[in-house]
């Protein structure tokens, strides 16, 4: 069984059919070739398949493609070239916060969603907000340092 959907993916319109049981993860990877969306745990724990739907982070492994009908989807491929991506990339490079890179796109997308939505002034708040994105390589310290740098630069209370 298939359903017709209409969505904006990385700024481009998608109008077409998806299977009713098709996962957003498979739709983005296999149909649209967006390989920056990574598959790992498949149970909404690791965060490596994170994409933004209407600006909110979702685990695309546990989200149906038909449910993005009428919505805006953003993956790492859509983030590239934006001022936020430039800025956070510089911070990640400076802190060597990328190792195998499998978790990196999901980390960046969650960080994007957090910008301006949460009280990110304290590291404790950032740790809690980011706990749904796992990384097995870095030990998180460098990612935290990079994130705090970016969040601090955008913290209105520190202007």
């Amino acid at each position: 069984m298939s359903e017709t959907i209409s969505a904006i993916v990385n700024g481009r319109a998608f109008d077409g059919e998806v299977e009713a049981n098709e996962l957003l993860l498979d739709f983005l990877r296999d149909r649209l070739g967006l390989i920056g969306v990574r598959q790992s745990c498949e149970v909404q724990v690791c965060g490596t398949c994170t994409v933004l739907v209407d600006g909110s982070p979702v685990s695309s492994c546990c989200f149906l493609a038909c449910d993005v009908d009428g919505k805006v989807v953003e993956t790492i491929e859509g983030l590239v070239g934006t001022p936020f991506h430039d800025e956070i990339s510089e911070a990640f490079v400076r802190h060597a916060a990328v190792q195998c890179g499998f978790c990196t796109p999901g980390m960046l997308l969650t960080a994007k969603a957090l910008m301006g939505t949460t009280d990110l002034a304290s590291e404790a708040a950032v740790r809690h907000a980011m706990a749904g994105n796992l990384c097995r390589c870095t030990g998180y310290r460098s990612i935290l340092d990079a994130l705090m740098e970016v969040f601090d630069a955008h913290d209105p209370t520190r202007a």
């Binding site: 969306v37 990574r38 060597a96 990328v98 890179g101 990196t104 796109p105």
Partner: peptide
């Protein structure tokens, strides 16, 4: 020197290819 990782930019852009890609 702590030079920039050669693979950092591709990985940050989601462009680095793994076997499953």
């Amino acid at each position: 020197l702590s030079v920039e990782r050669v693979d950092a930019r591709d990985k940050l852009a989601g462009k680095a290819e793994f076997t499953g890609d």
